[in-house]
Write a protein that binds this DNA or RNA. Structure first.
Lengths: 221, 221
DNA sequence: ACCTGAACACCGTTCAAGT
DNA sequence: ACCTGAACACCGTTCAAGT
């Protein structure tokens, strides 16, 4: 039989995570799927946290923004965020993984942090500010990706569709005088936005904040 | 002895959560602290999720931004975010609670959502955009509050200080040529930023993004 | 080097039963 | 109405032992 390898474990973990959510990824479930004892996994991973770190590392391994140093910092920063969002979009459980683990423990994600820090610092911010902005940007991208775009509701999942229907009805039946806007926007709230809005708008929003702060900085200097 | 009441449970849950982190809040631990059987809690809460929702609701109960409708939308939006950050700052576990539960299930947090949606929509955004922005803003505030400000490192916690020291050393011992900026900024990265930077900068950053998008919108219209 | 068996110390939750 | 006892089905993890 195929030997149990670190990568095989991570592959299966991602498969489960994408299909059933990260909370379905347990040591015991994983072992069962791989036809092995739970304790076998402890040979390849120190503990479950390291498994999750491994998942994150695997996900971010493909991340490589081309460093075209001729372009201005804000365009390059936008490219970085767009690439990150792209990965998060392709794997359903990617956002949860990065929320669960300490991002600084994921080697391949450190490359994202480093290039982000460099670009932001280059824009004229102090070290302290750069750290704050980088965290805001990366967490922001994850937060945006966490709220699924409409296209990701695959019709093949009637269970989730039903859950959304219930949720929408709950919001719509709130008292109109206390929660007028929630009642009004119940549908876009639970359905999320289209991928186009997501791309052109969500990323602009994140980068726009950084740009305007940079502009204020040089204006007052 | 004092009867077991819903509020008593939530109070104790918040006490544990603030002192030892949200993961230390378990049904069984809670029951033990309250001198009662674990199953007793199920009379007051349907399940653990509802307990966490209760914690979130309790935390956000004190939230009431004065609705000074004479001020422009962006100032009012800034006030809302500042108030939210204020609450998250006062309770160590507040951010974790709001990350864990479905925010839309927390009644008192729905008031935050509603006023945010109203103000954003008033700025001229579509429904879809408003939902996206509101999520970005609220999640962004939580993300910022999640990374602790320097002042919150109480000297009374030498264990956490030691953990930060180890973390900083780990970052500093990364290869300088692959991670130049992380090595350079290791200290502000693990220590977080000062409360002043946090307030004046972090919130400006969030609001700035919304303002600039609103400006672009009316400019192209 | 790589995996198993048995065991430990936890979880959340249900359900019938007590008062 | 409010709480308990006993039990179920899960967790992650350790440690000695097998090959």
């Amino acid at each position: 039989m195929g030997k149990l390898t670190r990568d095989a474990v991570i592959d299966q973990a991602l498969r489960i995570g994408d299909a059933e959510g990260l909370q379905a990824v347990t040591i015991r479930r994983l072992a069962q799927d791989l036809g092995v004892t739970p304790m076998a996994l402890y040979w390849h991973f120190k503990n479950k946290e390291q498994l999750t770190v491994g998942m994150g590392d695997h996900l971010m391994r493909g991340f490589a923004t081309q460093e075209d140093t001729t372009r201005p910092w804000n365009e390059r920063l936008r490219g970085l965020v767009a690439d990150l969002v792209g990965i998060l979009r392709r794997h359903t459980c990617a956002a949860s993984v990065l929320e669960e683990v300490d991002q600084m423990e994921v080697p391949s994600f450190l490359r994202v942090w480093d290039t982000a820090l460099g670009l932001i610092n280059q824009a004229g911010f102090t070290y302290e500010e750069s750290c704050l902005i980088a965290r805001y940007l990366l967490k922001g991208a994850i937060a945006l990706a966490g709220g699924e775009a409409r296209d990701r509701h695959r019709p093949s999942d009637p269970e989730a569709a039903e859950a959304r229907r219930v949720k929408r009805l709950n919001l719509q039946s709130l008292p109109r005088d206390s929660y007028p806007h929630i009642v009004e926007m119940a549908t876009p709230l639970v359905d999320g936005c289209s991928a186009e809005v997501y791309d052109t708008f969500g990323i602009d929003l994140l980068i726009g904040g950084v740009e305007v702060m940079a502009a204020r900085r040089t204006a007052s200097a």
